[in-house]
Simulated scan of single mutants.
Amino acid sequence: MSQLTAQHALLLARELSARFAVDAAANDLAGGRPLSQLAALRESGLLTALIPEAYGGPGLPWSTVLQVARELASGDSAVGHLYGYHFLALSGVLLRGSEAQRQRLLGASAREHWFWGNSVNTFSYSLFGQRSGEDYVLNGYRPFSSGSHIADRLLVAWEDQDSDVRFFGSLAVDQPGITLAHDWDGFGQRQTGSGRVLFENVRIPAADIYGAADSGANLFPSLGAVIAQQVLIAVFVGTAWGALRTARDYTREHSRPWITSGVERHGDDPWVRRVYGELYTSTLAAEGLADRSLALFDQAWAQGSALTSQARGEVAVATAAANVFAGDTALDVTTRIFEVMGARSATKTQGFDRFWRNVRTHTLHNPAEYKTRNVGNWYLNGDYPEPGIYQ
């Protein structure tokens, strides 16, 4: 049994975040695979954090795991993203797998410190499976497969070629017929490997196939969509803190007062102080909403297959509200820091634009408008959001 505690996990996350922040700008510019960061995460034991004690892990709650993701994102947004998505992919076996699958896959993941990537993308109708006895043979591709480029194991979703029913399972990334395209071309999150995974006659055995699509009788698998939103909240809040702290340090050490400001030190300008006060306050508020939604998520997760529609609805509303506010706050922070750092901060060498590019990339894949409407409908009419792929 692992001895990793919540307190220790957060301490490790802060230490690693500070280390990753040193090279974050250069790594963002280079793109590619964050292998040194992955090695550090393996060595720390943080890749096992969520795995229950029954399967060899420390059994830490989602709230701790996502706070770790937030801390990592404050140092390097791509690493926070990958860490959160690792547990989103790993959670597939907890949400849909049999007890035998949990024992085998989670046990191995705890022992070997596997990193999990995903190849699920809910909008892509591009990967199909043909029955072959009890197994499936997969052909096609999935885009936006975050973490696939450094993964040991992949969470995969495909449509049955005949019935169109969606199935989930997991595969070793070195399975014959799997090709990582390495074609992620986003201007943000450049180290996340969020491109395509190609499948050519890839056999997935029955032992690695989870349950079929969600059924109305069991709401527990529908929490997967909420986890995805929670990961994004962690990235938004973490990136906002990282941008704000980086800007503060730059302002203290390098920024020069404007010629008509009447002050000798940039930090003494009342305008600069007001902007930092506003950005700090809004980021603190975003973190508070995030923590509130995490507490509700822990409660919902603990219900397992007995999850009620009320508990699911409450966490969906809280998560949507936190997500919208965190995304808006992160966009505001990562834009306005340039106003108070000054013209010399807007260079490629500094790389401060990475904060905005990373946040903007995520918010475009996750429109706030529809979550805001869900929150408004609940507040106005008392209707919880219907469980779906994006809430």
Rank of each mutant, 00 (worst) to 15 (best):
D269Y: 13
N323P: 01
D269H: 13
T122L: 06
D23P: 05
G97C: 03
L82Q: 05
A39T: 04
T239F: 03
P34C: 11
F123K: 10
L296Q: 13
T179L: 09
S194P: 00
F220C: 13
A240T: 05
S305W: 04
N374H: 01
D249R: 15
V324I: 08
S282T: 12
Q103M: 11
F87I: 08
W114A: 07
S74G: 15
G288L: 05
T308S: 15
D185T: 09
P221D: 06
L12S: 09
R245C: 08
M341Y: 01
V272R: 00
A343T: 04
A13M: 07
P205M: 06
P205R: 12
G45K: 05
G193W: 07
L307G: 08
Y55K: 11
F220N: 13
T192G: 14
A212W: 04
V231W: 08
A243C: 08
A306I: 00
L244H: 06
L41I: 08
A100C: 01
V375G: 10
D332L: 04
T319G: 12
V263W: 05
A108I: 02
A181T: 03
I227Y: 00
A321C: 05
E159P: 00
A343L: 06
G129W: 11
R274K: 09
L94Y: 01
L244Q: 05
W184H: 06
L180Q: 14
L4D: 03
Q161H: 12
H113P: 03
L138V: 13
A13V: 04
G376W: 09
L4T: 02
G382P: 11
Y370F: 04
E112S: 06
A311W: 13
T246A: 15
L154P: 10
R274H: 09
R252E: 14
V93W: 02
D28E: 14
G75E: 05
F20E: 10
T122I: 02
H86N: 14
R111I: 00
S282I: 12
Y379I: 14
S17F: 05
W241L: 01
S36Y: 03
V340H: 09
R166P: 01
A286W: 14
L198P: 05
R248S: 09
R245F: 08
L154C: 09
F355Q: 01
G224V: 08
L41T: 08
G216D: 13
A110F: 07
